[in-house]
Nucleic acid binder design. Structure first.
Ligand code: DGT
Ligand code: MG
Ligand code: MG
Ligand code: ZN
Length: 569
DNA sequence: GCCGTTTTCGGCCCGACTGTTTTCAGTCG
């Protein structure tokens, strides 16, 4: 069982305990444990079965270690099953209505027998909530709105959508008097693969007109909150925007706070406590006296830490590394010398080879690889050996015409259901670059899928495993297979694992790419571009690589062409 | 439930905004 699934057991446990009115710190322990498992650099179930002492992992103690053992052995958690007996199955879903927390859910359930969103809405409409302790007219009205929003499908958004929305809002606020600076913070600044909302920090005099301007944006559907330093709105389409306003001399502390992550903040604040300091969005303080606040760097330094790049701020070991001067030198976009997966008009792309080459040269690249789909990928117009051979002649022509960039003859060969490849070995031997990826039969049993991938990895002509898990963000789950085994074989065979940079994929993800890097597996960051504009998605992949703690060393498309070709051979 | 070069018990990040409240609880960032 993968770590994310195990984490879900503890998250569900936490939700039910919360509704039952348990000690909030105990609830938090379950949430911390869930996170610890999710972020673990190895499979927790496998580790438990192998007899590893899981209590060595921070956030996991005797009780939860035993529960992981139980889940690993039986696939079930008795404690959770018993808890589920105590409340209606739909009740925890009420926690996802914004403004509703465990206290009110408990109240509604106990006093009125509410057991679902439907029954809650009905009770609210019939006026049965009025008169309950702490519930007035406005509470009910807000609740009904929140239920409506929930129904319309509030949820998380892809990072690219979040970044676009942030730009729009920042442009809207830009020229407001009294605003010196605007910057996107939160999960957007950390480059999380999805964002729950858009967080924007404004620097300026408190009490200025920026709050009005913000809540007056034409796309604002609902003002959720509005105070002196902080406002939240919901836009048409359901995206929430949070704005925080602070003065310039607290910019660093404010940005630190608003960038998060929450877990990073909590860990920093705990560290500050241990040093006799206090950290908040207003600065680092000893007693009433401010020690830092204007710049992030200064805040970190006052806590004895190096400045931590936002992509690492997930409380996954970065604070300890920063304390010991052990932060990695993360890969940067400028280190990238080429792009090793893209498509052209020969299949489902929108631009020609020459146009892709020209655009890539414009990005400063030394090389690209054209990697059309093979014939099994019918929907994309995949090519057979004859068509690909002809296509390679076109690539030769482009190479003869330009000196600016080298175009490699590649292919994205489909991995068939049995792990065989969709093109003949003799043809593959003639390619400069072979990317192999799965595009069908995603629901094979885990063991079969692992064998399928391993067989492809063992194929002597395969250089890169493309979009290794097949997930589509917010759309399709990764197919199930033994990740550790795939990493092991990739390393043995010298096969490079892709970080697909397209914002709908980001596959491998940050956690998995980090695991791969730690195991000595080589990676590359490719855009899988289907147009010249698609080449610019590289930045998303690079930031995922950074979130994976990767340096340029483990990423092959930072190599010069000669060195790359040698690695491929 | 977890954790400990000041603790094995008694803490657990710190603050803004709202609604219903007369001093604050709940929820959220
Ligand atoms: N100290 C502290 N900071 C918090 C807490 N919750 C949120 N923050 C800070 C860190 C977050 O990155 C930032 C923005 O909050 P969000 O709820 O929008 O979270 P974030 O953007 O990280 O993730 P998201 O994609 O929006 O779910 O505010 C908290 O409980 N304590
Ligand atoms: Mg956010
Ligand atoms: Mg937010
Ligand atoms: Zn593909």
């Amino acid at each position: 069982m993968d770590n994310a699934k195990i984490a879900r057991f503890f998250e569900e446990t936490a939700e039910i305990l919360e509704i039952l009115g348990e000690n909030p710190f105990r609830v938090r322990s379950y949430l911390n444990a869930a996170r610890a498992v999710r972020d673990l650099n190895r499979n927790a179930a496998a580790a438990a079965k192998a007899g590893e002492d899981l209590t060595a992992i921070p956030g996991i103690g005797e009780s939860i270690a035993a529960k992981i053992g139980e889940i690993a052995a039986t696939g079930r958690l008795k404690y959770l099953e018993e808890l589920k007996e105590k409340i209606p199955p739909q009740l925890p879903s009420l926690l996802r209505i914004s403004g509703l927390g465990p206290k009110k859910v408990k109240l509604f359930h106990e006093k009125l027998g509410i057991d679902s969103i439907d029954s809650l809405e009905k009770a609210a409409r019939e006026g049965r909530l009025d008169g309950l302790e702490g519930v007035g007219e406005k509470t009910v009205a807000n609740l009904l709105k929140a239920i409506g929003n929930r129904r319309k499908g509030e949820g998380r958004f892809r990072l690219d959508a979040g970044r676009a929305a942030a730009e729009t809002v920042i442009a809207h606020l830009k020229k407001t008097p009294g605003v010196d600076r605007l910057v996107a913070a939160g999960s957007i600044r950390r480059w999380s693969e999805t964002v729950g909302d858009v967080d924007i920090l404004a620097v300026g005099k408190p009490g200025g007109p920026v709050m009005e301007k913000f809540t007056g944006h034409p796309e604002v559907e609902q003002v959720l909150a509005k105070g002196q330093t902080k406002a939240s709105v919901r836009l048409d389409g359901g995206l929430q925007i949070d704005l925080r306003l602070l003065p310039a001399d607290q910019y660093g502390a404010a940005l630190l706070y608003f960038t998060g992550s929450k877990d990073h903040n909590v860990a920093l604040r705990k560290l500050a406590q241990e040093k006799g300091l206090k950290l908040s969005e207003y600065g680092v303080f000893r007693g009433k006296k401010s020690r830092a606040g204007r710049e992030e760097k200064e805040c970190y330094r006052s806590l004895g830490l190096e400045w931590i790049p936002p992509e690492l701020r997930e409380n996954r070991g970065e604070i300890e590394a920063a304390a010991n001067g052990k932060l990695p030198r993360l890969v940067e976009l400028e280190n990238i010398r080429g792009d090793l997966q893209m498509h052209t008009t020969a299949t489902d792309g929108a631009n020609t080879i020459a146009e892709m080459a020209e655009a890539a040269a414009g990005l400063g690249y030394e090389y690209i690889a054209i990697t059309e789909h093979s014939r099994a990928v019918r929907v994309a117009g995949g090519l057979d050996e004859t068509a690909l051979t002809k296509h390679f002649k076109e690539i030769d022509k482009v190479n003869r015409r330009t000196r600016k960039i080298t175009v490699l003859k590649g292919v994205e060969v489909d991995i068939l259901a049995d792990g065989g490849l969709d093109l003949k070995d003799r043809f593959l031997a003639e390619c400069d670059l072979v990317v192999a990826s799965v595009h069908s039969r995603f629901n094979l049993p885990e063991g079969e899928m692992t064998r399928r991938l391993v067989k492809a990895l063992r194929h002597p002509r395969v250089h890169i495993l493309g979009h290794p898990t097949g997930r589509l963000i917010l759309d399709r789950e990764p197919y199930g297979f033994d990740l550790d085994e795939v990493f092991k074989v990739a390393r043995e065979e010298g096969v490079i694992l892709e970080i697909n940079a397209h914002p709908s994929r980001l596959d491998l993800n940050d956690i998995h790419a980090r695991m791969a890097g730690e195991k000595g597996v080589k990676l590359c960051v490719n855009t899988d571009a289907h147009s010249t504009a698609g080449l610019e998605m590289m930045t998303y992949g690079i930031h995922i690589a950074r979130r994976a703690w990767l340096t340029g060393k483990s990423i092959v498309n930072t190599l010069e062409l000669k060195a790359l070709l040698k690695t491929l051979r």
